[in-house]
Every structure is written in C-alpha cells, then in structure tokens.
Write a protein that binds this DNA or RNA. Structure first.
Lengths: 232, 232
DNA sequence: CCCACTTTGTGCGTGCTTTCACAAGCGCGT
DNA sequence: ACGCGCTTGTGAAAGCACGCACAAAGTGGG
C-alpha cells in the first residue's frame, strides 16, 4: 500500500472531527473483520451513529479517499485514519493508581486498538507494588519520574484518588509526559503545552439525570421569566 | 385551533452549559467544605478551569442568583445547581457487568455526589453472581428485567464486554430504563427517547495520540497566533 | 448623600459545527 | 460510446458557542 500524503491543505482538522475519527475507525475495523471491501458514507455513518453528510465532511479533511458512485475502500480508509490519528506508531502508556479502575484499564484487552502499549504501572500502596498486572510489574509511585523516563512514556493515565491526582499530574509533566488522561474527579492544572483530557463518571451521571428530569417534568413547566425567587 | 405555543423552551439550557454545571457544582462543594460563604465568578471560574464570562453566562441560564459587587452565595448556588441537575431527588442506578470496571464504578464512594444510589448489580458469570459488592448482591443478568423493574432503576450503566453491550442496552430499555451510560466500546442503537452517553477509553487515547503526534510533527510548534508560515 | 470600587448579567462580533442540497465524478449495462 | 443511477465532495446557510467589553447594580468609606 504505497501512498503519499496528499497534503490536505493547511493541516487543520477540526477538533470535532478528530473526536469522531476513532469511532469511524472502529466501525471500519468491524467491517474489515467481515471482509467488506467497500462502504458508502451512508452505511458507515449509520454504523457510527452520525449524519452521513457530517461523515463525508469529516473524511474530506483527510483528503479525497472515496470513489464517487462506489464509496470508500475499507482497508485504505482504515490505514489513512490510523495514520492521521498517529496509530501507526507506538505510544507508551503509564497508569498511575492500580485500584479497581487502574486494573480495569490495564486489563483492557488490546488496549483499544493497537498502537498503545502499557509501559508502566504505578501505585503507592505497598500491598500492590511489586505485583504483576496485565504482565507488567507495578512500580512504586515514588519512582515515577525514573520509571516514566526510562520507559519512554508519552501518555500518562491518572486513576488515583482525587487527592493525589494533581500531584501525580505534575510529576508526569516533570518526567516529560505531555498527554494526560485523567479519571480522577478534579480539575487538573498543568503548564501550557500539556494536553489533558478527562473522563468523569459523576459528571456523566449528572448530565443523564438532568435530561431524565427534563423528560419527567413533561409539560408541567413554569415560566422562567416570572418570579424565580423561591426561598430554600 | 388554539394558538401554537411560542415554543416549549421554558428554560432551554444549552447542552454545553449542562455539561459544565457538574464541574461548577463540585468546585462549589469544595468551597462549602472550607466554609467559604461567597465566591466571585472570577474565583469560581478559576477553580472550574473556565473563562469567567462563560461561567457567568452559564449561571445566568439558571436565573439571577448572584449579587453585583459581591458574587454568588455558595450555599444557595449549590442548591440551585443541584436542583437544576435533578440531584435533589434520588436516582436508582443499575450496573451491568461486574468485572474490574464494574467493581470500580460500584465502589466509587458517594457515587459522585449524593443523589445516585446503586440499586442493582448484574453479571452473567456464575462466579460473580451472588457475591456482594459495595453492599449490594450481584444478581444474574438473566433476571435483568425483573430486578431492574422491582428496584425502580432509572439509569443503567453498561460495563460489560463489547459483545454483550447492545443486548444489555435493549433489555434495559425493555425494563423501562431511559438513561444509559455506556462504557463498552460500541455504538449502541436504542429507540427514540432513550438517552445514551458513552465513556470510551480508547477514543480518548486516540485523541491524545493525535494531538501528541501533531505536536511532534510540527517540531516548530506555533502558538495560536501563527508564525506567518500559513497562507492566508 | 455621594463617590469610588467591585462584580454581575448580557449585547454583540467572531469563529466553529452541523446540515442541506446539488454539481461533479465514477461504474455499469446496453 | 453513451447515458443512467449512484455516491462523493463541498458551497452556502443556519445554529451554537465563546469571550470581550461594558452598562447596571450593589457595597463601603467619608
């Protein structure tokens, strides 16, 4: 599969698009498993749960990889998206906090898709340090910098209790990590240039609760413009 | 025919705002613990990691709960946001899939904030069914409908392997659940009216990888303003 | 009572996202 | 070779979201 990156303009893929590419990729890999050679934007959009025009526009940011009248070649598109997302290279991941969550993350088979390798596990609990999880020995968090540096970690995952998260984050940064995935329910502050994404169970639940309540309210809703001053 | 209602938007809070309210709430509760009586939009915004104008606009969707020249009364605002999010009532949650992840979710102390109660745990593995996790006995997934209905579950959490997720989702819906939080790496399809949110480790990692690659590629990484290399 | 100072609430410009709608392009059957 | 049917790629419009900047509204000192 020889290809030259056709330089799709000023290399500016919108964030919203980037967030969807992994979803497309997963759907495409499922098609690949079923040995489907090509797929239309309509079909792929359905599998990914998005509007087909949006999918076409998203893909158009990568270049013109479709064939009119036919669709997209699955294999080729998988490769292009993988390359764009940086999955053709290996990323070393360290997980701090080997509780239930950390273990669940470590055991996450195949670690999403290929491209991510667990290079280090870290915890503060002496009962956990030294044990082997997912074929990796858990190191003590005191040695974070040393371990992270020698393993060449580029992505840090924080699965510690909230109280330790900020500290661990800064130590990751200190050790040269510039991408952090945070599962602890705190707002991390990190230096400019460090990329943090968060995953937060309780926020998601609260958003669900909001919408559920709204549905339950039905049409019994009062005007907001009136006297919105009910005492507690 | 009666006049068409001028639009059922009694209080149309933007989705982006709803997604941030839990963050504000958490920051406010931290202030509450330190017995801070009032807080300015500037200070609260800093704690929540957002722009202060955005915070004020977000809060303005709930009503005028601030005092000019002073700020917001912490206690009062906590109450108002809680009420808006529906946290003043209790939500019963069922978790399907009691592996490491499911256990981590079940053990999540206080379950975010008050308002969420684990009403049922479900698994298919006979080695897990019958055991007690987080003070709740794990039931067999075959009895999902019965258990969910009798416990009055309104939010279903899917922490099963990807292969079972779609099936479990439909059975949740069948049992009357209209809010689903999905941790399995699949796109769920559910009937109209059912609210699904997803949390996906591998998507987050891939997004991080994309940005990391972009930083590494550019080498001369340019700040927001640009370096004049880009054509206009 | 008035003035200096603080902080909220919001009008407005800007840029990003989504969606529609359709011309351009491609393959196939005739 | 030609036209028909299908599908992509994209201009244009509509809708959101963000953040600046400022008037309005409140506090406290003199």
């Amino acid at each position: 599969m020889t290809n030259r990156p056709p330089r799709p303009r000023g290399r500016g893929i919108p964030d919203a698009t980037v967030a969807r590419l992994p979803v497309y990729l997963r759907a495409l890999q499922a098609l690949q498993d079923r040995e489907t050679p090509t797929v239309s934007s309509e079909a792929l959009a359905a599998a990914a749960g998005v509007n087909s025009a949006k999918l076409r526009k998203d893909l158009s940011h990568l270049g013109s990889y479709g064939t009119r009248g036919v669709g997209y070649e699955v294999e080729y598109l998988v490769y292009q998206i993988s390359r764009e997302l940086g999955l053709t290279q290996d990323w070393s991941v360290a997980i701090a906090g080997i509780g239930n969550l950390g273990r669940a993350l470590a055991d996450y088979g195949g670690f999403g898709s290929r491209g991510f390798r667990i290079a280090a596990l870290l915890d503060a609990d002496p009962a956990v340090v030294g044990r082997t999880v997912a074929a990796v020995e858990v190191g003590h968090i005191d040695r974070l910098e040393e371990i992270v540096r020698s393993a060449g970690v580029s992505i840090g995952v924080i699965a510690t209790p909230a109280a330790s998260a900020q500290d661990v984050a800064l130590r990751f940064v200190e050790a040269g990590v510039t991408s952090i995935l945070n599962f602890a329910p705190v707002v991390l502050s990190v230096p400019e240039g460090v990329d943090v994404r968060k995953v937060d169970l309780s926020i998601e639940l609260q958003i669900l609760a909001f919408h559920a309540q709204r549905r339950a309210d039905g049409d019994g809703r009062r005007p907001v413009g009136g006297t919105g001053l009910e005492p507690v």
